[in-house]
């Protein structure tokens, strides 16, 4: 019997969350129109998975973890984010 978990009970270090590429659940992806973006940062604040980063091109979306929920597109005040169906 091989154990994979380090702890007794459902515990893990924070890196454990990186094991699960939740982007696989996505059926549509956010596409940012950078010419429209006002850099207000709402998508960054509202993203439930923390997939919007401001370090690289503002506002870069990490598609490994983005589940495609569309909250960023809904909150964007200048309609700079569009949800496009995955093919």
């Amino acid at each position: 019997m091989k154990f994979r978990l380090k702890h007794e009970g459902p515990w893990a270090e924070i890196e454990k969350t990186l094991d699960m590429p939740t982007g696989k659940w996505r059926y549509r992806r956010p596409v940012v129109k950078f010419n429209k973006c006002s850099q207000c940062g709402w998508c960054y604040l509202y993203c439930p998975t923390g997939s919007v980063s401001v370090e690289r091109d503002p506002f870069y979306i990490d598609l490994v973890y983005c589940k495609g929920c569309g909250i960023c597109a809904s909150v964007c005040p200048v309609d700079a984010i569009m949800m496009v169906e995955e093919v």
């Binding site: 154990f3 994979r4 978990l5 009970g9 459902p10 515990w11 893990a12 270090e13 924070i14 454990k16 969350t17 699960m20």
Partner: peptide
């Protein structure tokens, strides 16, 4: 930083 109530895959859930 530590997490409780982690998301677990099927084999991890069985292990728990």
């Amino acid at each position: 930083p530590t997490l409780s109530c982690i998301l677990a895959t099927d084999s991890e859930a069985a292990e728990l």
